[in-house]
Amino acid sequence: MLTKTKATLAATTAFAAVACAGSALAQDSFTIGITQNNVGVDSYQTTYEQAFIDAAEANDNVETVVLDAGGDVARQIAQMEDLIQQEVDAIIIWPTNGEAVIPAVRKASQAGIPVIVTNSNIAEPGFDFVASFSGPDNITQGSRSAEIMCDRFKEQGIADEAQIVQISGQPGYTTAIERAQGFEERLPEVCPNVTLLETQPGDWNREKSQQVMEAFLVKYDDIDGVYSGDDNMGVGALNAAKAAGRAGDITFVGATNFAVGYEAMEAGDYWGSIYQSPVDDAEAALQTALDVLNGEDVPFLNYFDTPKITQENMGEFSKPVF
């Protein structure tokens, strides 16, 4: 069983501080609005939303307005406008698109409403309008996935000749961009002779990723490894390889260890991933918003740790609930 992150362990202290800060700020409670990316797209986001609601309901000093953009940039911008009109005390945004939401984030900042970005950061030109980012370090995740892949190839004795494909997340989505970047930058450093044959987006969707992998299997006779931006897509790729009778020859590595990825690791079909809790993610975002509202010194990049998980050490980790 993993302990929660330092940020989450500090939540009780942060929550208690709200009561003390309330009189100083001449208000009894904070209203925090959140606009999420796309709750229905996968179990991680569904679990995140419920964890956020639970954490807020456990704090008598917090009221929330919980919104979901459904993956629609225009809807998320409209939701930001609505939260600004409601004059909430802080806004948490899980961006649908790291570039497109910048004007809405800027407008909130100009209205005096601190903005906390959660899970997937916005593009760098918007950083001046953000109080803090709370979430995983996606570049580090991609880098660690590359290390998992390379270590496995070295164990197999194919590090000097292996060929791999990559299934990335939603185009334009910061998490997808950063996980691919971390992987692509780190792999040549640890396994310089491994060849990345091709990258195609799976859009965080298992069925689409299965189709992408089916096309890869037709196109390439020799695939030694698959890196996917999350385990949902990774299991889609695994399913395609199983159907083609080629799964036993391929090392599958992902990120954000979903329950299906954990189960595939237990079965010996899926090699490794990055362990990331949506509960920690949600609680850390809420705590970061409270810390900002309380005037505490909050780092701009407020990361929580996401360690490597493989078939060799998975017994140290609880099965994900999403």
Results as ranks from 00 to 15, higher is better:
66 V>D: 08
66 V>Q: 08
66 V>R: 07
66 V>K: 08
67 L>A: 01
67 L>I: 03
68 D>L: 12
69 A>F: 02
70 G>M: 03
70 G>N: 02
70 G>H: 03
71 G>E: 03
72 D>P: 00
72 D>R: 01
72 D>Y: 00
72 D>H: 00
73 V>N: 10
73 V>M: 07
73 V>H: 05
73 V>S: 11
74 A>E: 14
75 R>E: 04
75 R>M: 07
75 R>G: 01
76 Q>T: 09
77 I>P: 07
77 I>D: 15
78 A>Q: 13
78 A>H: 05
79 Q>T: 07
79 Q>C: 05
80 M>E: 13
81 E>C: 02
81 E>P: 04
82 D>G: 05
82 D>R: 06
82 D>L: 06
82 D>E: 10
82 D>T: 13
84 I>S: 12
85 Q>E: 11
85 Q>I: 05
85 Q>M: 08
85 Q>C: 00
85 Q>F: 04
86 Q>P: 10
86 Q>L: 15
86 Q>M: 15
87 E>W: 01
87 E>F: 00
88 V>F: 11
88 V>G: 11
88 V>Y: 10
89 D>Y: 14
89 D>G: 14
89 D>F: 14
89 D>E: 14
90 A>K: 13
90 A>L: 12
90 A>M: 14
92 I>G: 11
92 I>R: 12
92 I>W: 10
93 I>V: 15
94 W>C: 05
94 W>F: 08
95 P>S: 07
95 P>N: 06
96 T>D: 04
96 T>Y: 02
96 T>E: 02
97 N>K: 00
97 N>M: 01
97 N>L: 02
97 N>H: 09
98 G>C: 00
99 E>P: 01
99 E>K: 11
101 V>H: 00
101 V>Y: 00
101 V>M: 04
102 I>K: 07
102 I>N: 09
102 I>D: 05
103 P>K: 07
103 P>Q: 09
103 P>M: 09
